[in-house]
Amino acid sequence: MTSPSQYQFKSVNYTGLQPGPRVIIMGATHGNEVCGTIAIRRVMEEIDSGKLHIAAGSLTFVPVVNPKAYEQNTRNGDRNLNRNLFPKDDPQDFEDHIANWLCPLLARHDVLLDLHSFNAVGGEPFVMVGPLDNDGALQPFRHARQERAWARRLGVKRFVDGWMIAYGDGVRRRSRSVDELETVLRYGVGTTEYMRSTGGYALTLECGQHLDPAAPETAYRAIMNTLAHLKLIDAPDPAPVPFEEMEALSMVVVHDKLHLDDRFSRAWASFDPVAEGEEIGVRADGSKVVAEFSGRILFPDVKAVANAEWYYLTRPNLSFGRE
């Protein structure tokens, strides 16, 4: 077994002379998602060469969040870092060691941009955003307006919200006790959720398919637009994506795979449209699983185990950005 001690963590900070927000931008939270790493290194080279200047605030880059997974060219080292992301008194796996380094680093910043990519071929980039302002127990938040205004300036046109609400509803349905509920809800916390829990705001940008040569360009544009929008560099604020060009979706419900022999009726991909009453899959007992409303399917998992998340359904959010 590989020893965690053979790895090291790296962050690079640039601080301007003028006051401004403390921004952190990360790549390779999942080791085979390298578009962010490529884009971050490109921007760092521009700063180091004098082509780009950080005039205000503080900018921290983490080119490779998970060095073990990155070295292996796999999504995870020992487990998914983007779940159950909390400091651990007794770290059990490599991602626990990352969390003990990363969580305090995140807490010292105000804004996080986490750059990812996805496996499916042909999908367009999208950004995952947080909840509206609220004082609830699940994910209290007070920066929705700033977060959503920033999301519209990353250079992508598809926006998804509602992760923790939909995920949390599924957890409550499965949980058998209060203790189990709290444990599994914590499992839904990744980098952006942790950042919001510290009082900041954050976006996850899915820049495209893992090997798409356009994905690093999408990541680079998002970094540059972020620096301009938050006024870390001397550049005009990028124009927001017009409302008429946006597709905003809210995750509404998660459906579980109840039996190992439950199967999809077709090879679904994220953002495939579904019509109300359309067959999604078939249960082990032969009963059909149909869409309860028209929308798009998200994160269909053909490899899901029994009593785990199988797929999410989303519906259009026509008020996104106008709240």
Rank of each mutant, 00 (worst) to 15 (best):
V64C: 13
R42V: 05
N100Q: 08
H259Q: 11
P87Q: 08
R152V: 04
P240F: 15
L115T: 14
A56L: 08
P67I: 13
D114H: 14
W268R: 03
A39R: 03
G31R: 05
I98Q: 03
E247T: 10
E46F: 11
M1H: 05
T74M: 15
D90K: 10
L230K: 05
P91L: 04
L105D: 03
A166K: 03
T183N: 09
N13H: 13
N73R: 08
M246V: 15
V184N: 00
N119V: 04
F243S: 15
H109F: 09
F141I: 01
A228K: 02
E180H: 13
R79E: 06
H255R: 08
T226D: 05
W150H: 05
A269F: 11
I24N: 02
F320G: 07
V160M: 09
P19R: 07
M26D: 07
R263Y: 06
V129H: 02
V189Q: 10
R83H: 14
P240Y: 14
N84S: 13
Q72M: 10
A219N: 13
L313C: 09
T198M: 07
V254G: 01
K68Y: 13
I54W: 02
M224H: 05
F94E: 00
F271C: 08
D161H: 05
K68F: 10
G168N: 04
L181A: 01
V189N: 07
K68T: 03
L112A: 12
R158G: 06
R22D: 09
H116P: 13
S5Q: 14
G27K: 10
F243H: 15
E206D: 11
E279S: 14
A107Q: 10
D169I: 00
Y220T: 12
G208T: 06
L211T: 01
E147T: 01
S265M: 08
Y194I: 07
D234Q: 09
